[in-house]
Design a protein around this nucleic acid. Structure first.
Length: 597
RNA sequence: GUCUCGGUAGCUCAGCUGGAUAGAGCAACGGCCUUCUAAGCCGUAGGUCUUGGGUUCGAAUCCCAACCGGGAUACCA
């Protein structure tokens, strides 16, 4: 039981004893005491003055007296207006510190066989172009969310649905056949996903030229778009693909393999991975059966043109198409099939989709449709919806060339990281390989933290020129603090100053030490809240608060030069605990921390 | 039109189950490297929390309305 829980229970008890009133636990508003006042936990007493029929100050004093007399951990209290500031004894904080330092995996709950199984879908790329900044936000949020869910004691299956079929990939295939001259990633040295992406762009360019030419010949815009040779070629490939034409399938497989190889490199650089990958080419037909079953059971209805629809007006929504008039599947149909497939493959307790907020409506409808089809899991789907990444000039548009490519971005940031590190000359003792690894760690730390620290549901602005900084509230700042803590501990070891976790800390901590211990002790709460709120940003904000606190401490309080052995030991233990917390927290964000930088 | 999400310092963002004087970073200005790493620390300046009502001891936070912006909205994914 945390100290806050103990206090809460005792306050309820106090009010029962003093005023003979029963209070609901959520009326007890506890908060961390503001720094300018003395105390650790503050109770807002206004809700209780009605019960005491006394002034706020008097009520606070009475509750305070009761707590001091009946709660071992409460050493004193003070009252400011209607706020009861409760002082927790330093013995208690020391015991917390001793517990943390001697617990192997504090705050982290390891999953067991009885744990809930959460499946998280994230990434979900198309195979016609490389990953860009929008995918980066998705991947980072998805991966971090999985880590947080695991830390909260869930079993997690990370999954990715690859949109590997459809007209988009046929466009790239057509362009490669027409203008590719047999180019491969090997022959050109171009990363596979970029090569395929180049042909997608090539297609668009040629297509536009053809349309312009046709319009110049007097065709209408609509006709031109329909009849342009390249579009016809792409459609023909799609038909051949669906007819399982051997040559087309072979080309499709070859080009998709290029893309997968390219994606793997990017995923690896980002440090994300998956336990199970679904391919739309393998699942896209399943949903159709479900829709037809729903039609047969009268859940859905059919129009004269033989398209199939769901009527969602009872739910306050519109009509939703599920099968086109030609009988082919739409996006929704596929997602129904994929969901069913997944729940057959795994004993899923909770399904989470990490998908952008432009699809909020889609997932609202998906949930209802699955429920209508009789799947119990339908209502429990969770759409982890996140906002878009915008550039200073507005939305990213691939056709206008305003996308920020994931690989380019990582490379540029690594370069900036290298330059900065070299100027500062802090890795001089490292081998080139060790140094390169650290540059990359710092670059990725900057990128990941920058994206993860903002509230997922909000749109965010990304300015490639200015946004990514290495100073201030950034990943590198946190990494830097960690590296310094490690440095302190190394030097302590060199000087044979023992940091023995088994030796219990006994010194009387000062205000600064207490402040740090308090922040550190709140780590499990932060992990828990981040899991409930599905928000890596909560973790990021917590770590930043801790790191900032530690830096101030570090500047004011000598550790190695401290004469008093007990205080030195206390501070070393605090440093070690802070480092441990930072590293564990950063792991939840998927960010590595270097031993030195 | 309807639904939905947002609007907090010049910029990027915290804070939102109602609580004390609204916080950080960047940018600007001024200090601090013979001490454990200056990717740091300290200080100055910067706010009608879009606007107007309401709820109450108390509102950036909850409710209503307006304005501005993003997104979705029957055969793209």
């Amino acid at each position: 039981m945390s100290i806050e829980q103990i206090i809460r229970v005792k306050i309820i008890e106090a009010i029962e004893k003093c005023y003979q009133q029963t209070v609901d636990a959520n009326l007890v508003q506890l908060q961390n005491t503001r720094k300018e006042f003395e105390g650790d936990i503050t109770l807002v007493v206004f809700p209780f003055v009605r019960m005491s029929k006394k002034s706020p100050e008097q009520t606070a004093a009475e509750i305070g007296d009761y707590l001091k007399a009946n709660v071992e951990e409460v050493s004193s209290y003070n009252v400011v207006k209607g706020f009861l500031n409760i002082v927790i004894s330093s013995d208690y904080w020391i015991s917390v510190l001793n517990t943390i330092i001697s617990t192997a995996n504090y705050g982290i709950t390891e999953p067991t066989d009885a744990s809930k199984l959460v499946m998280v879908e994230y990434s979900s790329p198309n195979t016609n172009k490389p990953l860009h900044l929008g995918h980066i936000r998705n991947n980072l949020l998805g991966f971090s969310l999985c880590e947080i869910l695991k830390a909260n004691g869930n079993k997690v299956v990370k999954t990715n649905i690859v949109n590997d079929r459809g007209i988009h990939i046929c466009k790239s295939m057509y362009a490669w056949k027409m203008w590719g001259n047999g180019e491969t990633p090997e022959s050109t040295g171009i990363k596979g996903d970029h090569l395929v992406g180049n042909y997608y762009v090539k297609f668009d360019q040629e297509y536009k030229k053809e349309i312009a030419a046709l319009i110049a010949q007097g065709e209408t815009k609509e006709n031109a778009e329909q009849n342009a040779p390249s579009m016809q070629g792409a459609r023909e490939l799609l038909l051949k693909w669906e007819a399982k034409d051997a040559e087309t399938i072979a080309l499709w497989q070859m080009m998709n393999q290029w893309v997968y190889a390219g994606f793997d490199v990017t995923y690896k650089a980002l440090g994300v991975d998956f336990d199970k990958i679904y391919y739309e080419s393998e699942t896209y037909l399943y949903g159709k059966n479900e829709v037809l079953r729903g039609l047969a059971e009268g859940v859905f209805y059919q129009k004269e043109d033989s398209s199939v629809w769901a009527d969602l007006t009872a739910e306050g929504l519109d009509q939703k198409i599920l099968l086109r008039s030609d009988g082919t599947s739409v996006y929704m149909t596929q997602d129904i099939g994929t969901a069913k497939e997944r729940f057959q493959d795994y004993p899923i307790d909770k399904m989470v989709y990490v998908v952008g907020n432009e699809q909020n409506y889609h997932f609202q409808v998906l949930s209802i449709l699955l429920d209508k089809l009789g799947f119990e899991f339908g209502k429990g789907l969770h759409h982890f919806s996140y906002g878009m990444v915008e550039l200073p000039q507005g939305k990213m548009k691939s056709r206008e060339g305003t996308v920020v490519d994931a690989d380019d971005l990582i490379e540029e940031m690594t370069e900036v990281s290298r330059k900065t590190s070299e100027e500062l000359g802090k890795l001089d003792g490292y081998t080139p390989e060790q140094a390169a690894e650290t540059y990359k760690m710092i670059a990725l730390g900057a990128l990941k933290y920058f994206i993860l620290k903002v509230d997922p549901k909000k749109n965010m602005l990304f300015n490639p020129e200015e946004s990514i900084d290495f100073n201030g509230n950034t990943g590198p700042f946190i990494q830097y603090t960690y590296a310094r803590i490690r440095s302190i501990l190394r030097k302590a070891a060199d000087r044979s100053i023992a940091v023995n976790p088994d030796v219990k800390v006994s010194a009387e901590p000062g205000a600064k030490e207490l402040q740090l211990i308090k922040v550190i002790s709140q780590f499990p709460t932060a992990v828990n809240e981040a899991g409930e709120g599905y928000s890596p940003a909560l973790i990021a904000n917590y770590i930043y608060e801790l790191v900032k606190e530690f830096n101030q401490f570090y500047h004011e309080s000598p550790i190695l030069a401290e004469e008093n052995e007990e205080i030195r030991n206390l501070r070393l233990v605090i440093a070690e605990t802070a480092g441990k917390t930072i590293k564990t927290g950063m792991k939840l964000l998927g960010i590595d921390v270097p031993e030195r930088m």
